[in-house]
Design a protein around this nucleic acid. Structure first.
Length: 704
RNA sequence: GCGGAAGUGGCGGAACUGGCAGACGCGCAGGCCUCAGAAGCCUGUGGGGGAAACCCCGUGGGAGUUCAAAUCUCCCCUUCCGCACCA
């Protein structure tokens, strides 16, 4: 008679036993080779979603696999505990963010434990703990000392729903919406704190020595957006001393400039605009400002602009070029001004067509017969209409003109990035206070290290005002200047929560460390992370920030390496049974707890790994999980019938012939090899398929 | 528009480095068990033809390379993802 598999009893028994034995405590300085395996820590939203299981259960399987291979594995867990939902809960339901967060964490701890994973809970990190965020503040001060944290007045993205500024990385899509809540952002001019990630732009483009997916590399490369060109000066006719600079990646086309364009917000605009053009220019400025704030969604990009009544002089030949303003030129990139070369730039071509500007060819396409171009020619060719440079290949012309500009002090070669510095100020309560005090006499004074942490006061008023709730907290705000003792005010903004996750992997090394962010001795043993897993949605946020952070730590002498995670794997997204993204409003959310209760964690884990390639994600299928259940049941039945499966390496089912023994051995080793190879490459689905085949074989062999 | 990835049964997906396409699972059909059902077990399951042995067709479409192509090359179509005036 076949025994029934009872997951509840078995799983509870063994999970308790592992816990009591401290089986999965990562041991510092163990002689076995270390393997630091990390999965992105969860936000304590309240309930462990099947998506968490999909991210974590296969990770756990991979970590266990390394452990079985003889590695000393560290597999830590913690909670990304600061952030907006906690504060919104406070606003809506009157629960303090701390209470809400800690209750959620407590609940999720239990749910996580039911997974039967090998986490080392003794290293748990909770980022809203002052013992943790103290080090956010400490890092901030160190960066401030090094000139990497600075305050500036800048046009920044503001989410009107979440009532806070956002980093550029947190504004997504053509509609420029808030990454959290999907609300279109608006621009505001605010004085904010930035971290100088651009200082590491070139280094962040170097992925040598790390095994990261091409996808993430490409996303980061595009985001950083390095381009090499020349920045040069344009003098303005009739305005002695007035000039502005433009950036171009095509100095070889400079003789083809028939106009110049300033961004509508360009600082020189007022000074250069002719009196009779002022009315039209102002009207355009107003329209552009409105559009960039509200109506950015128009797919039809009408390329228009307004002549300002002034002329720029081509520095190479003195030709006069009318100056326009147009919203296709952005103040935030390059110099906020461009040369208009319609023959060799698609946007400039459209613009010249619209305003009847000449379109002289200066880089002749191969086989060009002198006919007017029907569209901008962007490729390489032969220099023409460029006096001393005619006849050169344009690639050579590029260098010679750059040389000429440098020799005549007109301009110089320059590299530009799309990447901007990281805006970290948030006008919210539930985050790390920025440790700065503003004194009337001394200016912005860093909080002395001995006064850290700057604790969040517990009694703040959580009414959404657009200003940090800390601003209204008098005893938090009003403090003496640490420098002169005079009247001063604290910074009341808090830090972006991506700061917390930029270095949490280091805190796991020694989470109780009181005097340093982590113990360098133990760090020397464990670091860097050998394998990291998580969703690709963090490619240009968390995954870029943590690389930056590690490079800063290296320059501070805290670590000896420049990359935080040697290997990265991005799992896919698990969808609802209808193939759509799971959401409460769609009603297609799968609750893992229900399945764990009835079928057991092992069945859920097996099914999630079997569903398809891990990087692919895919829809949940409630019938499919029954297949996993049948499989686990068969394994159980085999074991219960005392047939030795894999591992015994040749114990034959009773009554097997010598040929049968050989066959069993062959199957066993074939399966071991296949499963080993597959697990090394995160191919859980085929590893499980191989084990199913093996079990099918064993079942048959036993019957024979 | 630019960049990237991918198109294989009714479904999720296998197929090392070019070597028996469809492993494994779901679903479906038939059977066993049962008073009956559930569960479980057994058999079958790409399409077409044939009583059968077998035969023909088949990996988005079209060409090509090769003894041999899901896999390599070129063109086209479709889907998904990312970026989107970045000068």
């Amino acid at each position: 008679m076949v025994q029934r598999y009872d997951p509840t009893g078995i799983e509870a028994k063994w999970q308790a036993r592992w816990e009591a034995d401290g089986l999965y405590r990562a041991r510092d300085f163990d002689r076995r080779p270390k393997w630091y395996f990390l999965t992105m820590y969860p936000y304590p939203s309240g309930d462990l979603h099947i998506g968490h299981w999909y991210a974590m259960a296969p990770s756990d399987a991979a970590a266990r696999f390394r452990r079985m291979q003889g590695y000393n594995v560290m597999f830590p867990i913690g909670f990304d505990a600061f952030g907006l939902p906690a504060e919104n809960a406070a606003i809506q339901h009157g629960i303090h963010p701390y209470t809400w967060t800690m209750a959620n964490i407590e609940r999720m701890r239990g749910q996580l434990r039911s997974m039967g994973a090998m986490w080392d809970w003794s290293r748990e990190v909770v980022t809203c703990d002052p013992d943790y965020y103290k080090w956010n503040q400490w890092f901030f001060l160190k960066m401030h000392e090094r000139g990497l944290a600075y305050r500036a007045l800048a046009p920044v993205d503001w989410c009107p729903k979440d009532n806070t500024t956002l980093a550029r990385e947190q504004v997504v899509g053509e509609e420029r919406v808030c990454e959290r809540c999907g609300t279109p952002v608006i621009k505001k001019n605010l004085e904010q704190w930035f971290l100088k990630i651009t200082a590491y732009a070139d280094e962040l483009l170097d992925f040598s020595g790390i095994e990261w997916p091409d996808r993430v590399r490409t996303l980061q490369e595009n985001w950083i957006g390095r381009s090499r060109g020349v920045e040069f000066e344009l003098k303005v006719a009739g305005h002695p001393g007035a000039s502005f600079r433009v950036f171009t990646t095509r100095p070889d086309t400079v003789y083809g400039m028939t106009f110049a364009v300033l961004a509508p917000e360009h600082p020189l605009l007022d000074r250069l605009t002719a009196a009779e053009r002022r009315g039209e220019v102002e009207a355009y400025k107003f329209k552009a400002a409105r559009e960039s704030d509200i109506e950015r969604m128009s797919t039809e990009k009408e390329r228009d602009g307004v002549f300002i009544g002034a002329y720029a002089l081509n520095p190479m030949n003195g030709a006069r070029a009318p100056i326009f303003i147009a919203d296709y030129v952005l103040l935030t990139y390059g110099t906020g001004a461009i040369q208009g070369v319609p023959a060799h730039d698609a946007r400039d071509f459209d613009f010249a067509k619209k305003y009847d500007l000449p379109i002289p060819v200066v880089v002749a396409p191969p086989g060009w017969n002198g006919a007017p171009l029907r569209e901008a020619y962007l490729g390489e060719g032969t220099m023409v209409n460029s006096s001393p440079f005619d006849g050169m290949p344009s690639s050579e012309g590029w260098e010679r003109i750059a040389d000429a500009m440098e020799q005549r002090r007109i301009g110089e070669r320059k590299v530009n990035y799309r990447l901007h510095d990281w805006l970290i100020s948030r006008q919210r309560y539930w985050g790390t206070p920025i440790p700065i005090i503003y004194c009337r006499r001394c200016g912005a004074v860093p909080v002395p290290e001995r006064d850290l942490p700057v604790r969040l006061p517990e009694d703040a008023a959580f009414t959404p005002t657009g200003e940090s709730p800390l601003r209204a907290h008098e005893t938090f705000r009003n403090v003496p200047c640490p420098n002169c003792g005079g009247e001063a005010e604290r910074e009341t903004d808090t830090m972006d929560t991506f700061i917390d996750s930029s270095w949490y992997q280091y805190r796991y090394v020694s989470p109780e460390e009181p005097d340093r962010p982590f113990d360098p001795k133990r760090g020397g043993y464990w670091l860097p992370v050998d394998q990291y897993t998580g969703g690709v949605e963090h490619a240009v946020m968390h995954l870029l920030y943590t690389r930056f952070w590690t490079k800063v730590m290296r320059d501070m002498g805290l670590v000896t390496f420049g990359e935080p995670m040697t290997r990265l794997f991005n799992q896919g997204v698990i969808l609802g049974e209808d193939g759509e993204k799971m959401s409460k409003s769609r009603g297609n959310v799968v609750n893992p707890d229900d399945y764990v209760t009835t079928m057991g964690a092992d069945v859920v884990r097996t099914y999630l790994m079997f569903i398809g390639p891990w990087e692919g994600g895919g829809p949940w299928n409630s019938r499919g999980i029954e297949g996993a259940q049948r499989f686990i049941q068969r394994v159980w039945a085999l074991a219960a019938a005392e047939v030795a499966p894999a591992g015994a390496g040749g114990t034959a089912p009773a009554g097997t012939s010598p040929n049968g023994v050989r066959e069993l051995r062959h199957w066993t080793h074939k399966t071991i090899q296949k499963v080993t190879e597959d697990l090394e490459g995160f191919q859980f689905n085929t590893a499980i398929a191989a084990m199913m085949e093996f079990v099918n074989y064993l079942t048959k062999a036993r019957e024979a």
